[in-house]
Structure formats: structure tokens, C-alpha cells
Design a protein around this nucleic acid. Structure first.
Length: 427
RNA sequence: GGAGAAGUCGCGUAGUUGGUCGAGCGCGCGCGACUGGAAAUCGCGUAACUGCCAAACACAGUUCGAGAGUUCGAAUCUCUCCUUCUCCGCCA
């Protein structure tokens, strides 16, 4: 969500930004919200004046009553009640206008960073840099579920019977590997100065609204029946939500948190849960990182954060690349975003394993989170988030890249302490 | 889940026959005086949001857990909800 004052003063920038994101259908909203805003301020002004009158009269009535001047007081009361209808009408209008304005402002996309490549959809995303050699071995790499099955590590059939499509049972060494990766990722981030956090896995609707767009909400979030609670789609939601309505002292910045949580996603409308295996599922686990920082620091943090992901994957011998999201592929709240993609020697292409985003002040504005500056003035901080690692998806990359010709899977040195010292997994 | 108590300005509290309470006091914090410097002491200041404005000040409005109501007027009265604490029940 952008500042309505910014929109009022720079409608052309906002319109161009909408065009850059290929959302021309939203262009009329700009003029509409400007008109509503003007009307809202007029309404508020008039209502304020009437309320000021009432306050003034009420004080006088108090004085008159004390002096026993009953009649004068009654006359004064009438003055106030005479304006009742008008005031009530204005107040109702204020509420209505404010709601409509907020609704529209939620739809207007955040202003993207000038560095973001312009393009209509994910086909225009830009590869920035590769890390590690994307090797294709001499032997065939089986589908990831097949590798897991060789270790008796997965049971999709039972998961289908028990929970339906999009769920999985992990077993034995594969399940242990899943936990090892999370634990390693957790310590990796702790070593880089982040505070480990386990957040709530369900959150209120107003927090959901604060951290994501309506679109994302509809296609991702599971709602608990009969309660104002949603299952989180990522711990980012409850981590950023932690600061709702808060004013942070400036010296508490940057807030650097790394969190563990299960994640629940409907994946409605996505390429389908049809994809076999554990690539796209309704439930997975994730180690996440979030930053709350001063606006001038957010781009530095953005750069640092995606590099953490690269470093982590490289330490597990997985080749990756950085893919920058183009304007049309960028969610409405985001200023800039990139994916870290892991190499799949089976598919001979890269696939998404991490997503790093700078949201600017959009979440802060929605959540009313502020920072008290040194000058005593409050300002909106910037928020960022990035995946550290999200198994089981990352296990696909791990198994494919660490598979040996004899069918065993080697455990990179960094992970061994979390796998009971094993150097290799043998089927 | 049941029974009780409570939610006030960063913290602790005052504030019930509704009116000069957006709110007193203490602590904390900031500025100043005193001091060679400090401690102590004294003085002043110290919430958020919105409108007006280029901006600041000033002014106006809103906010005493949230929402609704009664009233000319509500921190103070009524209702609903939320949260916290204590006791009981249940349970990882």
C-alpha cells in the first residue's frame, strides 16, 4: 500500500507504475481514489466543524447548569440537537468513504524500484548470476520421489488416502534429512546474527490483510472455520505481524529474525497441485528470515539476504542462480524481488527454491508499524523477507545434486553433524 | 470449558452522584540551571492518528482494551466482544 498523499501529489508516477506492471485495468482507480479522497477531506472538515461546535456548546451547557440558568442551557441544547442529523450523515459518510478509499489503496500496487526489469510475466524474469557449475552427470537422475522411494523415504499413497492430494509422509533417512536441513539452516542464520524465533502458526484476519494482497490471500490462505484465524502460508506472516500497531525505538533496528514454521497453502489457481511429488504441496516446512530496518538500509539488506541463500545452497553442493522478478511478476506489495533457483540435473534447468523480497514500507503502512526516530518523529520502516530453506522442495535439489552413480546420496560436510555424522546415505 | 478480578499517556498508579480530565502524581526519558566535572537538587518538557499548511507552529477533530448505546456532554453509566490475572476442570 502506498501513501495516499504520494498518490495525490504524483498521480502520473502511480499510473506509469501500474502500466509497468501490466495492470492497465487498475488505471481508473487512480482518478477515482483522488476524487474520493478530496470528498473525504471535505466531509471530514465539515464534520470536524460541527463536532467543534458541539464540544464548545457542551462546555457552555455545563457552565450554565452550574449557575442554574436552566432555560439558557435548554436553548443551547437545542442548538446542538438541531445539527444532529447533519452531523450523523457526515459521520456515516466519513466511515463509508474511508472504507472505500482503503479498499482501492489496497489494490494499487507499490511503486517498484527503478532497477526492476519491465516485463509482463515470469517469462521476462532475468537471470542475474550463476553460482556453481550446473553439472549433468553421466548417469540418469530419476524423479525425486523415485529417489526417495529407494530409501523407503516417502509414502504419497497413504498421504492421499489420509489428507488428499498435496500431502506427503516422509520416512526414515529422508525425513531425517528434512529435519537436518532445517536445523542446519537455523544454525546458519544464527551464526549470521539472526535471532531464532518460533512464531504462531495461525493468525488473525487483520494481520493477514496487513502482510499480503487480497489476491494472494484468496489463493493461498486456509481459514479456520468459525474463527478469525488463518493458517500461515509462511512464517513471514506472523513474524512481520508481530509488529502490528507497534512503535519501535530506532536503536532496536534492524530487527533480524530467522523463524521456523510449517506453511499451509491452498495453491489455488497455481500451476496446479498436479505436479507430481513434493514440488508443490499444501503443507511444507520452512526456515525463513525477515528484516525490519530503516528505509535507507533496505536495499543493502536485500542484497545481503539473497546472498545468504546462495551461500547456504552452495555449502550443500547445490548450484544455484539468481533470477530477478520483472515488474509483471512482482506481487503488488513488493518493491523488488528475486528468486534463488537451484539446478536440477534431471530437468537440466533451474527451479525456484528461495524468494527474497523488499516490500518497502507497504507492510509497515498496512500494519501501522512505526519507528520513533532520533528527532522524535515517527516513520515507517521497511520490511524484507527471504527463504532460508524450504524442504521438502529443497530436498529435490539436494537429492538430485548429491546423488551418486551407485544410487547412494552423499552428505556434504556441513550437514553431517545433523545426520549423525553420516557421510553417505545408502539405499 | 466453569467461577471471580482487572484492562488509563514508555512503566507504576490517581481518577465512580457523567461536565474546567487527553487526563493528576511517581518513575523513566529529554532540555536547562547549579558544578572544575559528576552525583544529588531545582525548573521546564515528554502519546498517537487525521484535517488545514509547501513545511513548522498554531488551530480543529478523534483516541483512556475494541465496538455499539444512553446523553447537550462519558475514562466515568449500559450492552457485546477481546485480552490478562487468580481459582477449578481438561490436556500435550
Amino acid at each position: 500500500m502506498i501513501d495516499i498523499r504520494f498518490l495525490r501529489e504524483n498521480p502520473d508516477i502511480v499510473r506509469q507504475n501500474i502500466k509497468n506492471k501490466f495492470q492497465d485495468a487498475k488505471l481508473p482507480l487512480v482518478d477515482e481514489v483522488i476524487a474520493l479522497d478530496a470528498e473525504n477531506r471535505r466531509t471530514q472538515q465539515e464534520a470536524n466543524d460541527l463536532r467543534a461546535d458541539r464540544n464548545r456548546y457542551s462546555k457552555e451547557i455545563g457552565n450554565l447548569m452550574r449557575k442554574g440558568q436552566k432555560e439558557e442551557a435548554e436553548a443551547m441544547k437545542k442548538k446542538v440537537t438541531d445539527a444532529d442529523d447533519r452531523r450523523a450523515a457526515l459521520e456515516a459518510k466519513e466511515v463509508e468513504l474511508a472504507a472505500r478509499i482503503r479498499e482501492i489503496m489496497m489494490l494499487i500496487p507499490n511503486i517498484i524500484d527503478p532497477s526492476v526489469p519491465i516485463g509482463p510475466d515470469d517469462s521476462a524474469n532475468v537471470e542475474v548470476e550463476r553460482f556453481g557449475e550446473p553439472v549433468v552427470p553421466q548417469f540418469d537422475i530419476p524423479y525425486h520421489t523415485e529417489i526417495m522411494e529407494r530409501f523407503a523415504g516417502i509414502d504419497m499413497d497413504a498421504a492421499g488416502r489420509v489428507s488428499g492430494n498435496g500431502f506427503y509422509y516422509l520416512l526414515g533417512d529422508i525425513a531425517r534429512l528434512h529435519e537436518a536441513v532445517l536445523a542446519y539452516a537455523r544454525d546458519f542464520m544464527i551464526d549470521r546474527g539472526f535471532t531464532f524465533c518460533i512464531p504462531p502458526f495461525m493468525i488473525h484476519g487483520n494481520v493477514v490483510e496487513g502482510v499480503m494482497s487480497q489476491n494472494d490471500m484468496d489463493s493461498m490462505m486456509y481459514k479456520i472455520e468459525g474463527e478469525d484465524l488463518y493458517l500461515i502460508g509462511t512464517s513471514e506472516h506472523s513474524m512481520i505481524g508481530r509488529y502490528i500497531d507497534q512503535i519501535l525505538p530506532e536503536d532496536s533496528l534492524p530487527q533480524k529474525l530467522t523463524s521456523y514454521s510449517p506453511c499451509f497453502r491452498k495453491e489455488k489457481g497455481a500451476h496446479g497441485i498436479e505436479e507430481r511429488g513434493v514440488y508443490r504441496i499444501h503443507q511444507f516446512e520452512k526456515q525463513e528470515m525477515i528484516i525490519v530496518c530503516r528505509p535507507e538500509d533496505s536495499m543493502d539488506w536485500y542484497e545481503r539476504m539473497w546472498r545468504y541463500s546462495v551461500e547456504l545452497f552452495r555449502s550443500l553442493d547445490i548450484p544455484v542462480r539468481q533470477l530477478e522478478c520483472c515488474s509483471g511478476d512482482l506481487a503488488d506489495l513488493k518493491v523488488k524481488s528475486c528468486d534463488i533457483e537451484a539446478w536440477s540435473p534431471r530437468q537440466k534447468k533451474y527451479f525456484e527454491v528461495c524468494s527474497c523480497s523488499n516490500l518497502g514500507d507497504a507492510q509497515a503502512r498496512r500494519l501501522k508499524m512505526r519507528v520513533k526516530g532520533a528527532d522524535g518523529k515517527n516513520y515507517l520502516p521497511h520490511t524484507l523477507n527471504n527463504t532460508v530453506v524450504a524442504p521438502p522442495r529443497m530436498l529435490i535439489a539436494f537429492l538430485e545434486n548429491n546423488l551418486c552413480a551407485d544410487g547412494s546420496v552423499k552428505i556434504p560436510a556441513a550437514l553431517r553433524p545433523y545426520m549423525g555424522g553420516k557421510e553417505v546415505l545408502v539405499p
